[in-house]
Design a protein around this nucleic acid. Structure first.
Lengths: 97, 97
DNA sequence: TAGATATTTAGATGGTAATCTAATTATATG
DNA sequence: CATATAATTAGATTACCATCTAAATATCTA
């Protein structure tokens, strides 16, 4: 079980509670940066930093819309993460493999 | 979705690649500290440190056997973690909920 | 009981990560 | 075009974390 860089970046990405909150927010639907920011106390720069880490892990995708950037949750990265977790722990993972 | 201290400690525990390797090793069966240590380069003190973090997260359990301490993977904590991940990402989690 | 082995604890160090303010880039609009 | 708004980037600071060596604790055995 050698981990790829991609897997490592996934685990680092979800290690922070603020980033997990961001991911959970996006689960309900896409959001602009300022909309996301309404749910947090920290500065916009800090949010930008967290978003860049989530982007690098490919957990979120961005598109531009005027002045705004719209972030969406990338479910295929989420699925990849869950698959890897199942392998890691040797879980059954509903008999699919 | 407010996280408990327990959940926070689970995510911190799996954030480190060495601890993920330990968990994966234990997935094959219980092991003493020195057996685990054969798979790593770092010092026994460092291993002990990692094991204590896994213990605090309740991902592993320990019992004494003479001079040895035998570590086992606690699958119910693993399951709890997977359930929480599913909630976090809004995944289907094989229709159980 | 003395010494060997197994493991943990204490304390120190270097590196990384989260956060901040200020500056920069990009876009929209009067 | 000038200014306002949205978001990122740069640079600094602080806190935390992985690791180390040395010391302590616990158990076994000669």
């Amino acid at each position: 079980m050698n981990e790829t860089y991609q897997q490592e970046s996934l685990f680092s990405a979800i290690a922070d509670i603020q980033r997990r909150k961001i991911l959970h927010l996006l689960q309900a639907g896409e959001m602009s940066v300022s909309e996301i920011n309404q749910h947090f106390d920290f500065s916009g720069a800090t949010l930008s930093h967290h978003l860049s880490i989530l982007k690098k892990a490919d957990l979120v995708r961005v598109r531009r819309q005027g002045q705004h950037r719209i972030y969406t949750l990338n479910m295929s990265a989420v699925e990849q993460l869950m698959l890897f977790m199942n392998k890691l722990f040797g879980a059954k993972e509903d008999e699919k493999q």
